[in-house]
Amino acid sequence: MDSRLGYGVLSYDLAHLLGAAVLVLSFVLLYQRRMGAVINTYAAQAWVLAAAAAWQGWSQGAPHLYVTALIALGAKGVAIPLALHNIVRRLRIHRSIDTALGVFPSMALGVGLVALSIMVVLPTTLSRGALTREDLALALSVVLMGLLMMITRRSALTQVIGFMSLENGLILAAVGVAGMPLVVELSVAVLVLLAFVVFGVFFFRIRERFDSLDVSHLDRVGGAHR
C-alpha cells in the first residue's frame, strides 16, 4: 500500500505534515527559556503526536492505533503537563531555565542532527515506501533532539521533558511502521513506567535532598574522587 503513496496523495501529505510538526515542536522545546512554556510546548507536541497516530490509524485501517492516540492525548497531552505545572507551582521552581548551551549553538546542533538522521535513514530504507522512510527519519530526528535537550539542560525537570519528548519520537516511529503489533501495549508500558518513576519519586526526593531541582548539585557527590 505504501508504494502507491507520494506527494499529492492526501494520506501521505497529512502524515508527513503531522510528523514534521512533531519535529518542529522539538525545535521549539530546544529554544524555549521559560519553564511554563516548555511544559506547554511538550503538551502541544503530544497533541500533534496523537493526531499523527490517529491519522495513521485511519489511513492504515488499524483501529488499535486510535488507542495509542488516546493515550498520547489523555496522558501526555493533558495529565502529565497538568502534573508538571502543579509541581512547578508547589516546589516553587525557578521559572527561567539554565542551559549549558546558547540558543544559536543548540539550534545549529539540532539542524545537524536532523541532517544526520535523514542521511542515516533514507539510504538504508530504499526498499520501503516513502511514507515509512520519511516517518522514520522524522522520528529519529525527534529522538536525537530529545537527547540533545537532555544533554544541554541542567534542571531535572527539563531533562525529564527531554526524555519524554524522546519517547514521543519513539511512538512516532512505532505508529509509522504499518502493521507493527504491540504498538499500543508498548506505548502503554512506556508511559506507565515513566509516569510512575518520574512523578512518584524523583522530583520530591531530589527537592527534599538538595532544595533545588538543578541536577548540577548531583555532581557534588560524583564518583571521580572515590
Binding site: 529522538v143 526524555f163 519513539l170 512505532a174 507493527m180
Partner: peptide
Amino acid sequence: SLAFFGTI
C-alpha cells in the same frame, strides 16, 4: 530508548 528504536 535507543533499543526500542532498534526493535522497530
